[in-house]
């Protein structure tokens, strides 16, 4: 069975010319059927752009300069806007970060649901309405029939994100791209939304690419984890292994920087220094200026992904965190 999502050598540049700086550089990963892939990395690592590239929503000056994107074995990059439209919302659902701004304030949530359903499925108004009500009750919106006539501003943030989830799952997608679905929400609501996302995905056999800053969310529901650094994959592997024994020093730093698995982590102060800016990547491994284990080789040669146990890590000396003490590092 082909993976639900297969990204191969994805490269996104800022501008179309030859020397345009690469925002995402040769990124490859798969998401298996029914699998939840967590995607983590510092702000600016390229997580959102990866999601947008898959949805075909990169706006100029961003440009997909290379690579191949397949959903359920069908290639979808380079499709015409019209062809792409029948993937978005139909076979690929999307959840954005801020439910306060994701919904159109002037249309009832019922209207937004039924228009999505009727855009993709051959249904009359009555059956689309029925489906919308059923979706709302599935995502846990109380009194769904009355809520159909509600406008977004009448609902709380958590309720709105439930509506957004209903929209993402409206046409039974095989893949859902969820870009920080809980970041904008109250801590007390976050767990509910994560639980709901996982339940929806399991019940419907959909795969999810879950972008987040929150290692707690990852630990709770991801099957596999991809760690992005500077537009490249630093490490990828099964969640339990990767969280327990991270192979890449960057992942190790990420793990060490979580004082409490439930708390939201936006910045990673425990790893000194900052990620290189777009176009300003250092020679060799992009992480070497911040890495306590960096050697001459790390500064000169860029490491490819190599197997380390059940994970893949882009590091010349993966594993062995014993010698890695983040607080003892001196960033160069």
């Amino acid at each position: 069975m082909s993976p639900a999502l297969s990204v191969n050598g994805l490269t996104v540049t800022l501008g179309r010319h030859q020397a345009a700086p690469k925002v995402i550089d040769d990124l490859s990963f798969d998401v298996g059927p029914g699998e939840i892939l967590g995607m983590v990395g510092e702000s600016g690592a390229g997580k959102s752009l990866t999601g947008q590239a898959i949805l075909g929503l990169l706006d100029p000056p961003l440009h997909m300069a290379g690579g191949r994107i397949e959903v359920a074995g069908e290639r979808i990059d380079g499709l015409s806007e019209t062809a792409m439209r029948s993937w978005r919302g139909r076979r690929i659902g999307a959840v954005f970060q801020d439910p306060m701004t994701s919904l159109n304030p002037l249309l009832t949530i019922g209207r937004q649901l039924t228009e999505t359903i009727r855009t993709h499925l051959p249904m009359n108004a009555a059956s689309a309405r029925e489906r919308a009500i059923r979706l709302l009750s599935e995502v846990g919106v109380p009194a769904p029939e009355e809520r159909m006539g509600a406008y977004p501003h009448m609902l709380s943030g958590g309720m709105r994100q439930r509506v957004v989830l209903a929209l993402a799952f409206a046409c039974d997608p095989m893949l859902v791209i969820a870009d920080e679905p809980t970041t904008a929400l109250d801590v007390s609501i976050q767990a509910q939304i994560v639980g709901l996302l996982r339940r929806m995905c399991r019940e419907r056999g959909a795969s999810v690419m879950l972008i987040t800053h929150d290692m707690g969310v990852i630990a709770e529901c991801a099957d596999r984890v991809a760690v992005l650094y500077g537009g490249r994959l630093a490490e990828i592997g099964p969640a339990d292994t990767l969280l327990r024994e991270p192979a890449h020093p960057y992942t190790q730093g990420l793990m060490a920087s979580i004082p409490d698995m439930r708390r939201r982590v936006d910045m990673l102060p425990q790893i000194p220094g900052s990620m290189p800016r777009v176009g300003g990547a250092p020679s060799g491994c992009a992480f070497h200026p911040r890495c306590s284990r960096a050697t001459a080789r790390c500064r000169a040669e860029r490491p490819d992904l190599v197997g380390h146990g059940s994970c893949l890590a882009a590091c010349w000396m993966p594993g062995d965190p014993s010698g890695f003490r983040p607080e003892a590092t001196h960033a160069g």
Binding site: R90, F96, T101, N104, E115
Partner: peptide, 10 residues
């Protein structure tokens, strides 16, 4: 919300 509407395939 327009970006999201695009993502819904409208």
């Amino acid at each position: 919300h327009i970006r999201f509407s695009r993502a819904r395939g409208l």
